[in-house]
Write a protein that binds this DNA or RNA. Structure first.
Lengths: 345, 345
DNA sequence: TGCCAAAATGACAACGCTGTCAAATCGCTT
DNA sequence: AAGCGATTTGACAGCGTTGTCATTTTGGCA
């Protein structure tokens, strides 16, 4: 009934250990032996027993995905990307939502890692940016890959365990798009201050303005959080009292913020995009579910996270053959929809 | 360094096996022995090794959560609910997104179950409604709990492995709410036909109309899917050509559909709720992110899924002491926001 | 051909727990 | 106090892999 490594060994006419070597893609197995074993594996439809591997091996066949993100779409994309890689590799995925500001986060964190003896971790922002976590993991000698906001240049010099999303470039592109539509008073409802994506997007915005000789005006900046509510508040504040700054466009820190800004604009009877252009970031599903649909920057989170997992595996199992090199920088590309346009009124 | 069951046994002055009994909450351990062991467990901060338990035991210490649902908020809630229970019980959670209409779904499904020797499964709609899956699981002798749409009455007679969400009651309540606001021409943009929640919500709607002597009119029904786009299409169809049916209210099959209907109404310059009331179901976060915010029926998915997990555990480990009885029916409660009201124009 | 280091393979003992079944203990009853 | 069934505990053998280390085989070179 249940096929074990012994059955395969017998059929292939080799030892148990050699089968183990083959399924773990260890080097130093002769091609002929390898084929023999693989044949037997196929014939018996052998599936290694995870529990046994976990028990016997140095680390378990599971990786963790750690997140502290209220954006469900983002999280699901991350999960699916990592999961698809895990399935291919025969690993399990342990999801670990947590609250980065909670008292016992670090503790829970370590408990989880040790309990499951995870082979590695994929860290998503903002946890990937927390130095204390990185230090802890380094100290514990745990493999991890970080998803970070950062530019291509930075990526080249960085450690080999980071995947970058070039939010700077995305913000630059969107800002330029707005400028080309004739906007000069472009406001920005920023996300959480401590998130690096916020800093990066702000920098991209600033550089785009500078490149087009538009004066920076910090009163056009609203420091908020990555939430719908913050978008509402920010837009209200920026557009208050008859829009003293004559703002004609608002960048939302992400799609949720942009949706919030849209909401606020509606409340104030402002036409979008006739009187005001609004754009988001990330191209999450609900950027297509606002009215009008949001111009945004597409960020393929499932692909990004799959690459993160790929990178993690390549580090985890150093002896493995033929791992393709993975790209470490992803640049979101702008998606122009109906929420941005020229001023018509 | 690493604390094993042997260390605990030695410290407590009992055998390894007795410690095993204690941590597995098996009956027939004397109170005194139990306390002794627990003391040692605490003192050493002993954490059973999952891999070893998985290997040695009959089934693994992991349960699966299976879903095929495009609604990220729903899925995340489900995950978090189940996960919190898993943490308490020392189980791992294996998430299994899948496509119920895909060719090899069943196959993948079984592979996953066997590979991980899962202790049980939590099935969410629509997979929980697929008889072929249920049959397969029964045949394989796998424990599972189903999350279903159904009424209190039904729950009483059902097998003990179902958790019901009373969509009928929710739809009844919302419909009655609309009726009390003076609406008589209430349309319904239904979700996927094959989902039981669709049938149930429709039944609740119908009975509410009947109870208030309002004539049923099937031209007020739009058969769609649970998606934003379907909401848009449905509302457009229902309200086309100057709204021949004089519809004054639309029930969206869920919040997404309702948001879509809202979107369509905006495109047609229809005032909400002045000219048209719209309501959703589920109270997902973006029912608060539309303009105006949606009246809907709150459904505490994280709590529901936690109960599902609790029920599953109580079935899995039959010998466990003092399991509280769990309620098997959840009735969503209406949340009145700004998208419903009396006709003013 | 013979020799040797390097490469490939194998034997066997863990890994840390649970299941089985036998042994010890308990709490009654007589 | 002895006897008995029921309850509680323990000894020990797996569970299916991987790690370690010993052994065999290979291929290059003298």
């Amino acid at each position: 009934m249940k096929v074990t490594i012994n059955d395969v060994a017998k059929l292939a006419g080799v030892s148990m250990k050699t089968v183990s070597r083959v399924i773990n893609k260890e080097p130093s197995v002769r091609k002929k032996t390898y084929d023999q074993v693989m044949l037997a594996v196929k014939e018996l439809n052998y599936q290694p027993n995870i529990a046994a591997r976990n028990l016997a091996g140095t680390s378990s066949f599971a990786i963790g995905l750690v997140y502290d993100n209220p954006n469900a779409y983002y999280v699901i994309d991350m999960q699916n990307g990592v999961l698809s890689r895990c399935r291919d590799e025969g690993y399990e995925l342990v999801i670990h939502p947590c609250e980065s500001n909670s008292e016992n986060m670090a503790e829970e964190f370590v408990t989880m890692i040790k309990r499951s003896r995870l082979a590695g971790l994929v860290l998503t922002p903002p946890l990937s940016e927390q130095q204390s976590i990185i230090d802890m993991l380094d100290e514990l000698g745990i493999h991890y890959v970080r998803l970070l906001s950062g530019r291509a240049q930075e990526a080249k010099n960085s450690a080999n365990n980071c995947i970058f999303v070039d939010d700077y470039a995305a913000a630059y592109e969107i800002t330029e798009h707005l400028i080309q539509l004739g906007h000069k008073k472009i406001a920005f409802v920023l996300g959480d201050e401590e998130h690096k994506s916020t800093t990066e997007r702000l920098a991209g915005y600033r550089d785009a303005l500078k490149a087009h000789d538009i004066k920076q005006d910090d009163t056009l900046l609203y420091h908020g959080t990555y939430s719908f509510e913050s978008g509402v508040k920010g837009a209200k504040a920026l557009l208050a009292d008859g829009n003293p700054n004559q703002i004609t466009a608002i960048l939302g820190g992400n799609d949720e913020v942009a949706a919030g800004a849209l909401f606020a604009a509606r409340l104030m009877n402002i036409e979008i995009p006739g009187q005001l252009s609004i754009s988001g970031f990330e191209d999450s599903p609900f950027s297509r579910q606002t009215w009008p649909k949001l111009t945004t920057a597409h960020q393929a989170n499932n692909i990004i996270s799959e690459h993160a997992a790929r990178l993690l595996f390549s580090k985890t199992r150093g002896h493995r053959k033929n791992d393709k090199e993975v790209s470490h920088v992803f640049t979101p590309s702008m998606v122009v929809r109906e929420s941005t346009g020229r001023i018509t009124q």
